[in-house]
């Protein structure tokens, strides 16, 4: 029973990896945005803005935010890709196999989160090459754990959305109305210490905020939100999103 479940999860993971490997050009493309942010936005910010601590707001502040953004984009896409599987028929092949739907969803999630972490790590390396000093090696390793939890959360959300959305037109709309606010309200690009009340409320209600803060703590050794709070925030988010995604996928009709 356990072996069979593991086998299903592994098969779905393997498929994601094979597809990921085939889309190398897309990976390069997805790294372009964070790369340009680091190279152009970082120096521009650092010459104009100061953090409340007095330091310039530079690449070392932006990098954790960019990693968080990359995880959000690729995880959400990973989950939502079920829509493509539905449209191109492959979903039927999976659903007619003698395997549990829940483990199919889980395998999809683990596959998606792996690709997300790979992208996160690539940004880590790019940022390091550009000259960012990380706090400690264990911190860098821990940040990958944060990426994992955060990724699972957004994939769960993606799967939940995909199970409810009929076409990829609807999906385009959801994506633009979801991803941009999530990124801009996450403290990826500005410190969240002195925000006006209404904005603070939105920022603190945003799961990505806790992800970015946790990654910042791991990489740089300091964050506005205490690490325990961030960790609890993203873990709860991941747990409930995966539960929701699994449930909706289970009841999805094709």
């Amino acid at each position: 029973m356990v072996r069979k479940a593991a086998n299903t999860v592994y098969t779905m993971w393997l498929r994601e990896m094979l597809r990921f490997w085939r889309s190398k050009s897309r990976i390069v493309g997805s790294l372009a945005t964070p790369f340009f942010f680091l190279v152009f936005l970082g120096p521009g910010f650092s010459s104009s803005y100061r953090l409340p601590t007095g330091q310039p707001l530079d690449n070392s502040f932006l990098a954790p935010g960019l990693i968080g953004m990359a995880i959000l984009f690729s995880s959400l896409m990973g989950g939502v890709s079920i829509i493509w599987d539905k449209e191109f028929g492959f979903l039927k092949e999976i659903l007619i196999a003698p395997v549990s739907r829940f483990y199919v969803a889980l395998g999809k999630a683990v596959g998606g989160v792996t690709t997300s972490i790979i992208q996160g790590i690539l940004i880590l390396i790019i940022a390091w090459l550009i000259g960012i000093k990380y706090h400690s090696l264990p911190g860098v390793v821990a940040s990958m754990g944060i990426m994992f939890i955060l990724g699972i959360g957004f994939i769960g959300l993606g799967i939940a959305l995909a199970s409810k959305i009929e076409s990829h037109e609807g999906f385009q709309m959801v994506m633009s109305f979801l991803t941009m606010p999530l990124v801009l309200l996450s403290g990826a690009f500005f410190p969240i210490t002195n925000l006006p009340g209404w904005l603070k409320l939105l920022v603190y209600a945003n799961p990505l905020t806790y992800g970015v803060e946790a990654i910042r703590w791991c990489l740089l050794g300091n964050s506005t939100i205490p690490i325990i709070t961030s960790l609890a925030g993203i873990t709860l988010f991941a747990f409930f999103m995966m539960l929701l995604g699994g449930k909706l996928f289970d009841s999805m009709e094709i």
Binding site: R15, L18, R19, R22, F88, G89, L91
Partner: peptide, 11 residues
């Protein structure tokens, strides 16, 4: 074998 293709065409 379904009426419409259910292969993964990227693989």
């Amino acid at each position: 074998v379904f009426q419409d293709t259910t292969l993964d065409d990227r693989l």
